Amino acid sequence: MDETGKELVLALYDYQEKSPREVTMKKGDILTLLNSTNKDWWKVEVNDRQGFVPAAYVKKL
């Protein structure tokens, strides 16, 4: 969790967005987890953008 109590995830792999609903991340990025109710796609925030990334590409910290 960060200082505001939000849950964080670590990008395990690079991911290039394939639609406007997704976000690009690089391996090693720390992202804010917004929603993990879907087992396949998690909603995150990175670089002031919100979108989805494959759940298998990130790990909760």
Rank of each mutant, 00 (worst) to 15 (best):
V58F: 05
V44N: 01
M1E: 12
I30L: 07
D2P: 14
I30G: 01
L33I: 05
K43C: 12
A56G: 11
F52E: 04
W42E: 01
N47Q: 11
N47M: 11
T37K: 11
A56V: 09
Y57T: 07
S19A: 09
E17N: 07
D40E: 12
K60W: 07
E17F: 05
N35R: 06
N35V: 08
L33E: 00
D14Q: 04
E3G: 14
V53C: 03
D2A: 15
T24Y: 04
T4K: 09
K43E: 14
T37G: 10
D14E: 05
M25T: 03
G5K: 14
V53I: 08
T4W: 12
G28N: 06
P54C: 04
K18T: 12
V9P: 00
D40R: 11
K39H: 11
E7N: 09
L33R: 00
T24A: 06
I30R: 05
E7T: 14
L31Y: 08
V46G: 13
S36E: 13
E22N: 05
K26P: 01
V44H: 00
T37A: 12
K39D: 11
E17P: 15
L12F: 03
Y13S: 07
K27N: 04
Y15S: 01
T4D: 12
M25V: 09
E45M: 11
Q50S: 11
K43I: 14
L61W: 08
M25Y: 01
L61I: 15
E45P: 00
R21V: 12
P54Q: 02
D14L: 02
Y15G: 00
M25W: 02
K26G: 04
K6N: 09
N38Q: 09
K27F: 05
K27T: 07
W42K: 01
D14V: 01
K59T: 14
R49W: 06
K39S: 11
T4G: 14
S19R: 08
R49F: 05
L10S: 05
M25H: 01
N35T: 07
G5Q: 13
N35L: 09
N47Y: 12
N47T: 08
L8M: 11
V23T: 06
M1I: 13
T24I: 03
D29S: 07
V44M: 01
S36W: 10
Q16A: 13
L31H: 03
D2Q: 15
D14K: 03
L12I: 11
K6G: 11
T24W: 04
K60L: 13
Y15C: 02
Y13G: 05
F52C: 10
G28A: 03
L31K: 00
P20S: 11
V46R: 15
N38G: 10
K59Q: 14
Y13K: 12
K60D: 04
D29N: 06
S19N: 13
T37D: 14
D14G: 06
K39C: 09
V23K: 02
K60F: 08
L33N: 00
L61D: 03
K60R: 14
K60Q: 08
E45R: 10
D14N: 08
R21G: 15
N35M: 08
V58L: 15
V53K: 00
K43R: 10
T37S: 14
V46D: 09
L31P: 01
L33D: 02
I30K: 05
K6Q: 11
T32K: 13
F52H: 05
D48F: 10
R49S: 06
Q16L: 13
L61K: 04
E3M: 12
L8N: 06
G5T: 13
L61A: 05
T4V: 14
S36G: 11
P20N: 10
A11V: 10
S36Y: 07
G5V: 14
D40G: 09
K59G: 09
D48I: 05
E17Q: 14
N47A: 12
A11M: 02
G5Y: 14
Q50V: 15
Q16K: 13
D29F: 04
S19F: 06
G28D: 06
P54K: 03
S36A: 13
D40V: 14
G28C: 08
W42L: 04
Q50P: 05
V46N: 15
T24Q: 04
V53Q: 00
K18H: 08
E7M: 12
A11C: 12
R21H: 13
E7A: 10
A11N: 00
E22K: 04
T4A: 13
K27E: 07
T32S: 08
K59L: 14
